[in-house]
Design a protein around this nucleic acid. Structure first.
Lengths: 298, 298
DNA sequence: TAAGGTTACGGCGATCGTAACGATC
DNA sequence: GATCGTTACGATCGCCGTAACCTTA
């Protein structure tokens, strides 16, 4: 048994058991992968993968159990290199942040600006993705830190820290009838709606609130991006349901915002990272910066 | 980085940083160890060991931190081979039990006899040691399971399961004056005492009980072994303070036993094994057998 | 001088890449 | 025939062991 065999198992899982792709990822030829897998299975005495013909089609019960240990080993191995690098020079490195558009544009800029000043030699990569992909990016180490609102709570192998609570809001042009009188969910539902894609930026909370009142929404446009929504609100397509933090008082003067705190439950933006995963000091400091920025942000 | 380097770190720790001994344990020559350590430290970029001249004298802060990950990797690696072997044939293997004399002689026989019947192909090795060594034997994998009374509670990386409670008792010859009238700690303290070595079989509980009353014990003989104590009680050296479970009604007819349940707090025999350490099915069954035997035992 | 560690060097074997072949869609 | 995997074979490079040397108790 050796570490490349252990890593191979992880890569095979990531490539859905495709040896050729795994070979590419590991920078070796495909036949090397084939042989190493054979050797490893031979050493253990039983197959780890189910096979259909020659292709791998899944994992055996033994394989699944062993993957738990494999994941532990890979993480500890990565920790060793990270810890050592951090010890050598804790001001240098790379920070991969996975987040959604709304957070990247409205919440993160302040924290990132300050962080850059403290750590000019840290490269920041911002990975934008849908919330459901953020978690898998943590697991595949494409991202070190994930920041978002949805879908983080049920994961048991993540460390979560709350940043700030926010509410949804309506944005409409100045001449819109919604600007007169109280706003209710019923009134809102009578207009064409522009809001986030499902799974984005508290969309599930929106749906739940309307559903609880038996209201159907006429969603004419769904986007991952608050700015896209605002653009089409300006064009008169309907009323925009966005995060209140996505309204910029300076730029969005041509739109009127009405907070829906009393109608739709608040959402919470959180930062997440893998449990048992060593984060370099600068990453830990970035999280601190984030929490400070969050307090000022609300 | 490779697995033998990881294992080397563990072995170096076990040998108190002696490369020559580590080389022996790993079945390679000493120069190979020297080079592999150099290579590994070079790869990480900083030394893991403190040095006095050429000799290793301790671990650097970095080294200590990295040893945590090393321990995780080694354990997971061992788990992989154990799981695979267990999957191949779960009725075969080796069980290393570390325990003290009292448990081995008076508690374990029944459980072991039954276990042998179920698993005739499992080799049982009984490692006898002082309680304080049992834990380190778990860590070094000299033992899979430890059974004893003392010193297990504060360890956070062990899984503990309670077996049974027992009390201390006095054993004296038939003609001894203690056989007449009530027994008190004060009366006991007026006789020469024979009991366990410190650290063994609830000795600390005994000391605490007498100390609480301000009594000094005149200990004429301390042994690790209940039978040694009984032998010298028979020779008239004094009164024996032993575990009640170490009195065998059939064999010890020439001695009178008085239970001290009302004078000395009870002790608890526990079974312990490493957290996150995969135990083969037969080992898990042995523990179950142990718990059943414990219920019948009291 | 014994015990512990380093360095240089030669040999062996593990593992890789090339390449030809087999299977499955 | 494109994709995916296996097997055979030659070459290379990593790692070990031998051996000579260094350092400290």
């Amino acid at each position: 048994m050796n570490l490349s065999q252990i890593e191979l198992l992880r890569v095979l899982q990531e490539t859905q058991f495709n040896m050729s792709k795994a070979a590419d990822k590991m920078h070796v030829v495909q036949s090397a992968v084939s042989r190493q897998l054979q050797l490893f299975e031979e050493e253990l005495g039983s197959p780890l993968f189910e096979r259909q013909g020659k292709k791998l089609s899944g994992m055996t019960p033994l394989g699944k159990r062993i993957m738990e240990e494999v994941a532990i080993i890979n993480q500890a191995k990565n920790n060793i290199t990270t810890i050592a690098a951090d010890f050598l020079d804790s001001d240098k490195g790379t920070l991969h942040i996975a987040t959604t558009h709304t957070q990247a544009k409205y919440f993160l800029p302040m924290a990132i600006q300050r962080f850059r000043k403290k750590y000019p030699n840290v490269n920041i990569y911002m990975v934008q993705a849908a919330p459901e992909q953020l978690i898998s990016q943590l697991h595949t180490r494409e991202a070190d830190i994930a920041i978002c609102t949805e879908r983080l709570d049920q994961e048991t192998d993540l460390v979560l820290e709350k940043c700030f609570d926010w509410h949804h809001a309506v944005v409409v042009p100045h001449n819109h009838p919604l600007n007169d009188g109280d706003i209710t969910l019923e009134r809102l539902a009578s207009y064409p709606i522009l809001t986030y894609n499902f799974g984005f930026t508290g969309r599930s909370t929106i749906d739940k609130a309307f559903k609880a009142k038996g209201l159907d929404l006429d969603i004419v446009l769904a986007a991952a991006d608050s700015d896209v929504i605002k653009t089409y609100v300006r064009l008169g397509l309907g009323v925009g349901l966005i995060a209140d933090i996505a309204y910029d008082a300076a730029i969005d003067q041509d739109l009127v915002i009405h907070n829906l705190a009393h109608l739709i439950p608040s959402s919470c933006t959180k930062v997440a990272y893998l449990k048992h995963n060593y984060l370099p000091l600068f990453s830990q400091h970035f999280i601190e910066e984030l929490l400070i920025a969050a307090k000022e942000f609300v």
